[in-house]
Amino acid sequence: MKKKENILEQVGRNTGYKVPEGYFEQFTARMTEQLPERDLPKPEVVTTWHKLRPYLYMAAMFAGIWLMLQVFVAPVVEADKELTAAIEQEEDIEEYMLYSMDDYTIFETLYADCE
């Protein structure tokens, strides 16, 4: 079993393959000479405007949303505030209740309270 475990270690990591002297140095020079001309388009120049553009667009979008909230949502909230303030006055509520009930309902309520 030990022999089995060691058999690959005995061989080691050397393949036994070799290359001509100076092959890799010469290969680089040979390869570079073989490379055909390439006609790539010039890379696009990235200006500060290009870099800032997405952030500016995002800021404009948020400003737009804020403006819409101011125009459409704020007046509604303001109206709600007046209503809330009115409801908080207990006397006003009682007066409002009495005003909105008919006589029959008032008597019925009083009768129920006495019971």
Binding site: F24, F27, T28, T32, L35, P43
Partner: peptide, 21 residues
């Protein structure tokens, strides 16, 4: 970059040539 690609590619060949071989 078209102006520097050939020189850069030579570096690539030099760097990876042996491993790939």
């Amino acid at each position: 970059n078209p102006d520097t690609m050939r020189q850069a590619f030579t570096q690539v060949v030099e760097h990876y040539g042996e491993r790939l071989y």
